[in-house]
């Protein structure tokens, strides 16, 4: 292959360090729920108890493994950057995604914070374009920073005329 084949450079900014704890908590919550679900019939129903306990064990084990590995991995991947002309993000862990949207095609900018994000003082910035590909989301930003980013994006997009399609 060409030696001068282009690569994507990682976006400039990492998300907030506290996002690791947010992802850990979220993953742990899902793991606990999924593990408890097969435990309930195991307690009630004697004959199938070993099978359900094995299922619970596997689910719990895999869940814990993900809980340990995923947040650190995500923290290495999740990055964002806003230039004068575009929004650039990367996200994911096993399956990774890079998104670029030009400033001129941005339709709306929102910030949102779920209950769990609020516990850690985090917010997400959602940038919507006219595409059906779904919005670009920068999650796990410090709340004040997220508000600043959203304000700045709103100002930049307002300056550009057109109906963003």
């Amino acid at each position: 292959m060409n030696t001068d084949a282009p690569r994507l450079r990682p976006p400039n900014h990492r998300v907030d360090r506290r996002a690791v704890w947010w992802w850990t908590t979220r993953s742990l919550a899902v793991t606990v729920v999924l593990t408890v679900v097969p435990v309930v019939p195991a307690l009630i129903w004697e004959p199938v108890r070993p099978w359900f306990l094995i299922a619970a064990g596997i689910l719990g084990g895999v869940g814990l493994l993900i809980t340990v590995a995923m947040p650190q991995w995500r923290f290495r991947v999740h990055r964002w950057e806003i230039t004068d002309t575009a929004v650039y993000t990367s996200s994911g862990w096993l399956w990774q995604e890079w998104r670029v949207a030009p400033m001129s095609r941005i339709q709306t900018v929102d910030t949102a914070r779920g209950p769990l994000q609020r516990v850690f003082g985090l917010s997400s910035v959602t940038v919507t374009t006219a595409s059906a590909a779904g919005p670009i989301e920068i999650s796990g930003l410090d709340h004040t920073l997220a508000t600043e980013v959203a304000d700045q994006l709103t100002d930049s997009t307002e300056a550009i005329p057109g109906d963003a399609t």
């Binding site: 001068d4 084949a5 450079r9 806003i82 230039t83 002309t85 650039y88």
Partner: peptide, 18 residues
């Protein structure tokens, strides 16, 4: 602005607005 070439001739990075 977000691409780098492997031969070291990377694009001059635009200053981030933030």
């Amino acid at each position: 602005p977000f691409l780098v070439r492997d031969q070291g001739s990377s694009e001059p990075e635009r200053p981030s607005a933030l």
